[in-house]
Nucleic acid binder design. Structure first.
Length: 768
DNA sequence: TCCAGGCCCGTTTTT
DNA sequence: CGGGCCTGGA
């Protein structure tokens, strides 16, 4: 098990029970160390599978971890707590729902449900949603929860925040009344449960001897607090992460947790995995050199025993269109050289860049796959069906009620619903319970809807899950509605797929044990136990309690909320992989294209003004580079269409942070302040292997580039020096628009980057 | 209730 | 430019 490991890997795997921080560089065998560690602890008898808690961020990572542990050790992994933060907290809350102050059948709101609930709340309370936009409110509430703060804990230093806090409190009351829980609430409730309830805390602290955390650099404040509580009874915490791959600060991740952890727990037990098994030398050294420009790193230098390999191929094109065209030609070359399409990845900083590339690939007939679209359980028709199903389980779920009360349309208008809402509020009940209080025609339509929900509940109460789902889809009017819709074919197919998903879910639960909830199964005897409220184990009949004490429907609904499904458009067939750099984290490919490496795009203009933002962009570039095994391309365009206007940008600073020796320019590399157009001709003769590249027509250089943008009597170009009365001297790093609408992005020497309207700002041109 | 057209906005995203 | 959202008129 451990003899195939290198020495730091083996050291990490076989560490005695103590806290440790493993700094695992890209491609250094992180998952292998984590899973082997678990298997080793079990095999050497140091801990039973039940004493291990392993936590990840994504379901995919959790599945992979489970699969790899069970492939190393032929043990029953059913009783092990391997899962996502949210999945494990859900499991804990179901088991101790009473102590946590929740109904056992609490529903989970996904991000969209939560937003809908907030909109409804603001309307009901007459909050001005211009001053308090729902998204802003959502950010505020989730931000507070992720810091572990309830309304009473948030500091109210101005009126705006005071009002926000009031809204937060109202929102909490609404969720509580409806029996629903949003994503951050799952974590916060579980944390509060452990911190306030001594018996429950003692139970879990006694149980878990080893707590292992994947992607530790992505944890937020609350997740770290939760871990500290769980491990507070003497468990060993084994945290694996890479501060250089921290790219989720914008959603609350706190890289600082890593250095805090080292200080508070690891006390110097820091193991560095620096040998990289993925990439060749040029690629790795480029990544090392780039990331060395960041400050405050925990420190790490990747190396490889593989040779230096090929240099990074760099291409600069005049426009985004020609960049895409070049890319398609190059991709076809790679394919005709015998590379698999699925081993070719095209990465970009932002989703908007994909369209031009998709268009070019599509026109050329190259199969491709785009990651990041709508996921299965997020589709409109699926969310509607789930809303009906939720009402079967809990008619007081107002979010679901509102979603389908008039879908398909059944003559219940805004006016009626407003009335219903008023009644519900006046009597402090759910919408469902307030139906009888609404008179008139709208009221009778409402009553009919409520009756239908009741009838459906009754009809389906004894049905197995797949038939239940099928029945609800068929008799709620959903199916009929989409059958009438000329463009409803896809939606019908998805609804049928939902029935299949329910069937698969039941089979999976039978075979692999329990997807969510509280059951713990002893590996040898197969006896099923449920952790009771006071932390005592109660044996249940496994045949009766197949879903952890939850009904199959409830378990399925939790599953749907916690695992929204694949977010890749078309599965199957061998296809070129298109995705954002964020989505590529954790993946690897033989050949990688990093596109749009321009100032303003990568690093993104919204991030360059503050140092920490720029460093995160640099880490993003580091992640992108380290995805490549053999071949890496950098590409950029001098101009591109963005927001309906042509924009001009300079080469990204990241290009100059990679030493020249690692790069080979396939297009001419010239100075930026050159007044000549940088683009001369487009042909480059073959690659380093001498493969001949078919000659093609030279793209036409954009006419505007040489002259730049003209405003009044002044002509502005990218790279030009300018002086501003207040901001001082600077360099134009981006131009967009024409005439009086034209804007320039300027990097000032003293005050940083600013975007100025050229029709307004007074600028002098400085001769360099 | 429904749909068309105007309007606004534009980084990254998992649970 | 293009998508999502809201509003106002039929």
């Amino acid at each position: 098990m451990i003899d195939k490991l290198n020495s730091p890997q083996r050291e990490a795997v076989t560490l005695p029970p103590q806290h440790a921080l493993v700094l695992a560089g890209a491609g250094s065998g992180k998952t292998r160390v984590l899973t082997t560690r678990m298997a080793w602890l079990i095999q050497t008898g140091q801990v039973s599978p039940l004493g291990i808690l392993a936590v990840t961020f994504t379901n995919k990572a959790a599945r992979e971890m489970t699969a790899r542990v069970s492939s190393i050790l032929p043990i029953d992994i059913r009783g092990m707590w391997i899962g996502t933060f949210h999945g494990l907290c859900n499991r804990m809350l179901r088991a101790h729902h009473r102590d946590a102050g929740l109904p056992q059948a609490f529903q989970i709101l996904d991000t969209a449900d939560q937003l809908a609930a907030i909109k409804r709340l603001l309307k009901a309370n007459g909050v001005d949603d211009d001053k308090y936009p729902p998204r802003e409110v959502q950010r505020f509430i989730n931000g507070a929860k992720e810091e572990g703060q309830r309304p009473g804990d948030v500091e109210a230093y101005d009126n705006f925040r005071r009002r926000m806090i009031e809204i937060y409190a109202l929102y909490e009351a609404q969720c509580q009344r409806e029996g629903v829980v949003d994503f951050p609430e799952l974590l916060l409730r579980a944390y509060e449960l452990l911190s306030r309830n001594e018996p429950v805390r003692a139970h879990y602290q006694r149980r878990f001897k080893h707590v292992l955390v994947d992607e530790f650099q992505d944890t937020n404040t609350l997740q770290y607090k939760w871990l500290r509580l769980l491990a507070g009874g003497g468990a060993s915490m084994f945290a694996v992460g890479d501060d250089d791959q921290s790219i989720y600060a914008f959603r609350g991740a706190n890289v600082g947790n890593m250095s805090d952890f080292e200080r508070d727990y690891a006390h110097g037990t820091v193991i560095r995995l620096e040998q990289n098994y993925r990439s060749y030398g040029h690629i790795l050294d480029a990544a090392n050199a780039l990331i060395s420009h960041n400050n405050g790193r925990l420190g790490k230098n990747l190396w490889t025993e593989q040779g230096e390999g090929e240099q990074i191929r760099v291409v600069e094109q005049p426009t985004d269109l020609s960049e895409a065209q070049w890319l398609v030609d190059e991709v076809r070359g790679l394919i005709s050289d015998g590379r698999e399409r699925s081993q070719i990845a095209v990465l970009y900083r932002s989703n908007a860049q994909s369209r031009v590339i998709e268009h070019a690939l599509f026109s050329a007939g190259v199969a491709y796959k785009v990651y990041g679209g709508l996921r299965f359980f997020e589709r409109q028709e699926i969310k509607h069906a789930l809303a009906y199903l939720r009402l079967m389980a809990n008619p007081d779920d107002d979010t679901s009620w509102m979603r389908v009360v008039n879908f398909p349309p059944r003559g219940i208008g805004a006016r009626t619903l407003e009335l219903l809402g008023d009644q519900a509020r006046a009597f402090d009940t759910s919408l469902s319970s307030a139906v009888a209080r609404v008179p008139g025609k709208g009221g009778s339509n409402l009553a009919q809807f409520a009756m239908m929900i009741n009838k459906l509940s009754f009809e389906t109460r004894l049905l197995p899950l797949p038939e239940l789902v099928e029945h609800v889809i068929a008799h709620s009017g959903l199916m009929a509605h989409y059958e009438q819709d000329r463009e409803g074919a896809d939606r019908i197919e998805n609804l049928n797929e939902l029935v299949n998903a329910a069937a698969a879910f039941v089979i999976e639960a039978d075979m692999a044990g329990l997807p969510a909830g509280v059951v713990v199964q002893a590996p040898m005897t197969g006896a099923t136990t449920v952790i009771a409220d006071a932390g005592q184990d109660v044996v249940l009949d496994p045949m009766q309690e197949g879903f952890n004490g939850l009904s199959p429907l409830m378990a399925f609904l939790s599953h749907a909320a916690l695992e929204a499904g694949d977010n890749q458009a078309q599965a199957g067939q061998d296809a070129v992989q298109l995705m954002t750099v964020h989505a590529a984290k954790g993946l690897e490919f033989d050949a990688v294209f990093i596109t749009g490496i321009e100032e303003g795009l990568f690093p993104h203009e919204n991030s360059v003004s503050d140092p920490s933002g720029l460093e995160e962009e640099r880490r993003l570039m580091y992640v992108a580079i380290t995805r490549a095994r053999e071949r890496l391309y950098f590409s950029l365009a001098q101009s591109r269409m963005l927001h309906g206007q042509t924009r001009y940008a300079m080469r990204s600073r990241f290009l100059s942070e990679v030493p020249d020796v690692h790069m080979k320019w396939l297009t001419p590399k010239q100075g930026l302040s050159d007044s000549e157009p940088r683009w001369k001709t487009s042909h480059y003769a073959g690659d380093t292997y001498g493969r001949q590249v078919a000659p093609r027509a030279a793209p036409v250089p954009p006419k505007m580039l040489a002259s730049g943008v003209t405003v009044g009597a002044q002509q502005f170009r990218v790279g030009q020096g300018v002086r501003h009365a207040r901001f001082g001297e600077g360099t134009i790093i981006g131009l967009a628009g024409t005439g009086l609408d034209a804007q320039a992005q300027i990097q000032f020497r003293d005050v940083g980057a600013k975007t100025l309207a050229l029709g307004v700002a007074k600028l002098d041109i400085v001769q360099s």
